[in-house]
């Protein structure tokens, strides 16, 4: 045994102590609450997406004449295909939901403030990539709503000033949805965006290690208890527990509410009721409220403001002399987000 150890030590000259030092960031106690450890959830779900996504790619075909049929094959004929596809779909839903919740907790605890502004910006890039991945993934099924959703989205891009028409051409590979469009969505969904997400996550987590997570203190914490615990093994165990619970949840959702097939894309008929995926309900409702240019420019403005929020926040504090000004903005934004989403969900048109 010791000879084996020595053999390994000689070839991989890393010491247990070094490993421990590398992983053993002391973690503040509040991360024992799930609400504060939410950042790990999208990371875990991302791994689920990579695994199930690779499995689906064994059968998926990205040509418009074969795409819908290949998804139908996965769903109805391939053994456990329905399970793999449903896992992929539900993990996508939960991933987007947990990114949003994670961002809300960062926002409401003002954890983006100096010196963590850049990590907020990286986080915004992660949010954008995650939403884009969701959008391109939905397009791959090539059912009616996939097709018309993509058409509408490309034309929204067209309305963006200056770069919009370039963006539309790059997305659709032409003026309209054509036979070269779907392969684009596929390569974006399965290669370009996931790689980008992995790189961004690496930077995101490096920043967290460099700064440590924001220290928060709560009244119910007694002052004589230690206020930190070890990342390894304590926090890792927390994350593993969350991972197991998620896996059970995903399996249950996939079994009870499996992914289904809508009618195949038909470019000649727009369905009577057209809706995007739930995470775009907000922007869909917004589009119906205003003319296109107003909707597009205001959306662009809101996203830009979200990106530079840490600096807007500083300005707000200086102007209002109130440390918590951002909380009020956040509450209004949250109500707007929920309100518009629910509104779009309950009406047909």
């Amino acid at each position: 045994m010791s000879r084996l150890n020595a053999w390994i030590q000689e070839r991989i000259p890393v010491h247990g102590d070094q490993l421990r030092e590398l992983t053993n960031e002391p973690v503040p106690n509040h991360l024992k609450r799930w609400w504060f450890a939410l950042g790990g959830t999208p990371a875990y779900l991302f791994v689920v997406q990579v695994v199930t996504g690779i499995l689906l790619a064994f059968y998926y075909q990205s040509s418009p004449s074969a795409a819908w049929e290949s998804v139908r094959y996965i769903t109805e004929d391939a053994r456990y295909g329905w399970y793999i596809r449903s896992l992929h779909k539900w993990a996508a839903t939960l991933m987007i939901a947990s990114v949003i919740l994670h961002q809300m907790r960062v926002y409401f605890t003002a954890a983006y403030r100096r010196p963590r502004e850049l990590n907020w910006v990286i986080g915004m890039c992660l949010l954008m990539c995650t939403l884009l991945t969701g959008f391109t993934g939905y397009s791959l099924v090539f059912e009616q709503l996939s097709y018309w959703g993509a058409t509408v989205a490309a034309n929204i891009s067209d309305a963006v000033p200056v770069i919009g028409s370039f963006g539309k051409q790059m997305l659709l590979a032409g003026d309209t949805y054509n036979e070269r469009t779907l392969p684009r969505f596929y390569i974006l969904h399965a290669a370009v965006l996931p790689t980008t997400i992995i790189l961004l996550m690496a930077v995101h987590i490096t920043f967290i290690r460099l700064h440590g997570v924001t220290e928060l203190h709560f009244e119910d914490e007694s002052p004589d208890e230690p206020d930190h615990f070890n990342f390894f093994p304590d926090h890792l165990l927390t994350e593993l527990t969350i991972g197991l619970v998620l896996m059970i949840l995903l399996s249950a959702l996939a079994t009870v509410l499996p992914a289904t097939m809508g009618p195949r894309a038909n470019p000649l008929v727009t369905p009577e009721v057209i809706k995007p995926e739930w995470f775009f309900y907000v922007s869909f409702r917004w589009l119906k409220l205003f003319s296109l240019s107003v909707a597009v420019i205001s959306t662009g403005f809101i996203i830009a403001a979200m990106f530079v929020w840490p600096w807007i926040d500083r300005l707000l504090i200086r102007l209002t002399r109130n440390e918590d000004a951002s909380v009020y903005v956040g509450i209004v934004a949250t109500f707007l987000l929920i309100g518009l989403t629910v509104w779009e969900a309950v009406v047909t048109h």
Binding site: P64, S65, N178, T181, P267
Partner: peptide, 14 residues
């Protein structure tokens, strides 16, 4: 009328 779109490709199999 403008050039070809996707419906030709799809209608073959639709």
């Amino acid at each position: 009328v403008p050039g070809t779109g996707i419906s030709e490709v799809i209608s073959e199999t639709n």
